[in-house]
Amino acid sequence: MEVQRIELSTGVGLNVALAGPRDAPAILLLHGFPESHRTWRNQFAELSQDHFVVVPDQRGFAGSDRPEGVESYQTDKIVADALALMDALEVKHFTLAGHDWGGAIAWTAALLHPLRVKRLVIVNAPHPYVFQSSLIEDEAQREASQYIRFFRSPTAEAAITAMGFETFLERVLLSHSDPTKLPVEERQAYLDEWKQPGALTAMLNWYRASTLEVPASGEQASLPLWTRAPFPKLRMPTLVVWGLKDPALLPIQLEGLDSVVKDLRIVTSPSAGHFITWEEPGTVTAAIRDFLADTRD
């Protein structure tokens, strides 16, 4: 694995980890909140045996640029980063994988650019239509998602700073996963990244820029108009991997996926939480490897 700085046509520079032969089929791996390319550290070696593996720190995270302003973190701009990165690497078609917020970007990129995304891999990241519907209609999912309202608040930075980044790590990562699976050096890497000037605001701006409607618990709410219209169906092969012990994204996110994805396979783990890529790396790696083998051109 090598880490390069790549300047994109979208105006941001990303730190990007690269591995595997450049002429092999490409796979782009996107991380989520509040991580970095290290989310996928346990998948690099296996996938790079026969794929060109591309894993950026997305805008606002770790070593990549942190543009100012909430509007800089709108979904369309981050999707544009992903496409611009593959353009810079001269890759036209690729498999796209995403975890958490990276999965949200992957869902959207696949919907908007189906001719470039040949296969889609989603890891504990809800489909936009299914997620928005559940936030209105399912009280348990709405309650589990109240953290989004906190992250969007203008006082979130001050509250997190006051509690301390070590406590934040315990509440956000370790309470959503098996803490024994996160080595000391990885914990320190998170802390070092979060303490960089402007890093916390940049990460939180992903939530603030989202158009997702998250009503308060018990609040009367109706479905947004866009959820009442027919939603486009993805047609590329799609793999969804899910840790069922995820306390933030409940198993209801797997219900109804077959109505918005034509070629769908689902792999679940009853023992993993939200951060399954490093909690149960073997489950994730094997699922992706099998999926890529079964859908090879």
Rank of each mutant, 00 (worst) to 15 (best):
A162D: 14
S145F: 03
M163S: 07
S134W: 07
I160Y: 04
S145A: 09
A158R: 03
A159V: 14
D138F: 15
P126K: 06
L169Q: 03
D138A: 04
E139W: 14
I136Y: 00
P128I: 05
I136D: 02
E166G: 01
G164N: 03
T161Q: 14
L135V: 07
A144C: 10
A144F: 07
E166Q: 06
T161N: 15
F131W: 08
Q132G: 00
L169D: 00
E166L: 04
F165D: 02
E166P: 08
S134A: 15
P126V: 08
Y147M: 09
A162V: 13
S134Q: 13
E170D: 07
Q132H: 07
S145Q: 10
A125Y: 06
P128A: 02
L135G: 04
A159W: 09
P154L: 13
A156I: 03
F151G: 12
P128F: 08
P128W: 01
I148A: 05
Q141T: 05
F150W: 15
A156T: 02
E157W: 06
V130L: 00
A156C: 06
V123H: 09
I160L: 08
Q146Y: 05
R142K: 15
T167E: 14
Q146N: 01
V130Y: 00
V130D: 06
E170M: 00
L169M: 01
S145P: 03
Q132Y: 01
Q146L: 11
P154H: 10
F165P: 07
A159C: 04
A140V: 07
R149W: 12
E137D: 11
V123L: 10
S153P: 12
P126R: 01
V123E: 09
L169T: 01
F168I: 09
P126G: 02
F151V: 13
E137S: 09
E166K: 04
V130S: 04
A125V: 03
S133W: 08
H127T: 08
S133D: 08
E143P: 11
I160F: 05
T155F: 14
T161V: 11
S153N: 09
A144L: 03
Q146D: 06
F151Y: 14
E137Q: 14
Y147G: 11
M163W: 07
A158M: 11
I148T: 12
S133V: 11
E157F: 10
L169V: 06
T161R: 15
I136T: 12
Q141L: 05
A144Q: 01
L169G: 00
E157V: 13
F168E: 01
Y129K: 12
T161C: 11
Q141P: 10
T161H: 15
A156E: 03
N124S: 15
V130M: 05
E139Y: 11
Q146S: 00
E137Y: 12
Y147N: 04
I136F: 13
T155P: 12
Y129S: 09
S134Y: 00
I136P: 00
F168Y: 01
E170R: 02
A162K: 13
L135Q: 04
A125D: 06
L169P: 01
